[in-house]
Design a protein around this nucleic acid. Sequence first.
DNA 1: ATTAGGTTCTGACATTTGTCAAAACGGTGG
DNA 2: CCACCGTTTTGACAAATGTCAGAACCTAAT
Lengths: 324, 324
Amino acid sequence: MPSTSVRRSAGQISGEDIVVEAAWLYYHDGLNQNEIANRLDVSRATVVNYLQEARERGFINITLASEPFTNHRLAGELCARFDLRAAYVLPDGGGSEREQFERVARGAANWLPSLLEAQDRLGVAWGKTIHDMAEHIEPVSIADLEVIQLVGSMATPYGFSAEICSANVARKLGANCVNLHAPAVLSTSEIAATLRKEAIIAAQLEAIEHCNKALFAVGSCNHDSHIVTSGLASHDDLDWYVAQGAAGVVCGRFIDTHGDPVRGPLDERMIGIDQTALRGKTMGVLVSVGRDKANAMLAALRGGYATHLVTSQSSARRLLDTRP
Amino acid sequence: MPSTSVRRSAGQISGEDIVVEAAWLYYHDGLNQNEIANRLDVSRATVVNYLQEARERGFINITLASEPFTNHRLAGELCARFDLRAAYVLPDGGGSEREQFERVARGAANWLPSLLEAQDRLGVAWGKTIHDMAEHIEPVSIADLEVIQLVGSMATPYGFSAEICSANVARKLGANCVNLHAPAVLSTSEIAATLRKEAIIAAQLEAIEHCNKALFAVGSCNHDSHIVTSGLASHDDLDWYVAQGAAGVVCGRFIDTHGDPVRGPLDERMIGIDQTALRGKTMGVLVSVGRDKANAMLAALRGGYATHLVTSQSSARRLLDTRP
DNA sequence: ATTAGGTTCTGACATTTGTCAAAACGGTGG
DNA sequence: CCACCGTTTTGACAAATGTCAGAACCTAAT
């Protein structure tokens, strides 16, 4: 009676097959590792290995439903106060601001796919928030999705510049990516104007105008915030805009505490979506968290740039504690 | 120093919030129950309860990726042999036929959502297989999906009659449901013809013609198979069709070993999709398993009714072991 | 044959998770 | 104020899962 070996390399069963079988028995049929070990006639330790392999290979998807987060009490209040269609509030979990940032990025990554549908054209801004979010998106494929870079590229080589953000989001969502092949800011408004008329750039700006959804973060108006460190604005630029009442930055554009555009010399030299166009999208997803972002978030929310918000509990409380 | 209570009903945190928080920390942040217990300042046993509640409430979704099943060696061979676009082969797991049936139903439930896209019109047949499958679909919402009942309702009250199958599939997928408000089989062809001309029925038959995808099982030609027990065909009907070469049943219609229609007196009296229309769909998902279904499956596959197949390893082997 | 080098598997132990009866709690009505 | 009742939490124990060093196994080269 020659017993057929179950060793992975032997037998008629191909290598990964037994791994899948173990995963199925465990996650779908609800057997425990002992029962699986008996059925497959291997040791329980081996079953542990199979299951680990299955997880590593991404055979198992564990996702958290979005409802409990959006239904969160704070989410409801945020929607009411800032006229949002939905908000996604992540628990603080008692961790540091660093951890909270991470969690919000993951939360946004978790939520985003369910906000998109086939044929959407999603504009993507830039920044550490957007970049980290993109990292955490579980790859899915959304039919005929187009991802469009909303802001020109950064002069300084930067880990989370606009083209990298949009490319990563597109990659994770299996989408086509329209990059904006121009610097975010040019030395003179004339050069910017010329560039805007270039056929290639014009087509890309056209794509920006016609995207229906937007994903963006906000920047604060400090001298150490990304708007300066990325080389988009000089310290003088920043001072000038702050003097005019700037309270925050969306897609590289300055806005005041009411969210209204603060226009100035830099604007003419920039290539990318402007405040008016951003406000016109049918969906605007704002991802932001942190004490330092509070004012800028408030400005962006008041300005009506966002229809959807992802943030943390403590940030949500800060927003709600401010007088309207 | 009044310590704020974390008891669920107290504090500013709403009841389900702490459950969600625990779930997040566990499934997303990968903390273990002890760490979570410390953070939330409750006992570990409580964390266990929270996590259980989160699972019960469906906050956590665990699904298996479809690739390992569709990439399976047997799946590839099935595609090649029967000209399928994809096959989903479930492990046998050493269990009984009963367990295999169950597993195939769950596998189909797992796979189906990823086969559908927005605006699809999915025709759904009937039978125990389809019914059990529907039970196991994890509720999702597919935009503008329409589910259409392919076969009329059963005269005998039946747990898995056509209208129940389509309604359940529709419910789970958040789809609109077009039911066929007519019996599957009538006493005379004249009555059937009259009924087909009724405006309501005609519109429903129209919907059947225009659906682009179909989900169906096969029936075998035994006297104890559902085609007889459900009251669709009498024993005499069955004998007659078998004598004409019938080897299986799809959507209540008889086919021979090549999958070609076997037409007879019963056909004129039936209301529902016919063999030609079924063959014309852009996608046909056949879900079937079991030794007794082998011949019928073979017939359906040869007849080109299916573009996608869900079955078990052992059933797959049986199919492949048969001479083409 | 035998040996070397890699991979896969296993047994013994460590850690994590689940269970359950009893205790603590919060509201309610005497 | 207290006794009651249903719910939530907890501690102690039981079960399940994870870890890791070494055994078993395969392959290919000597």
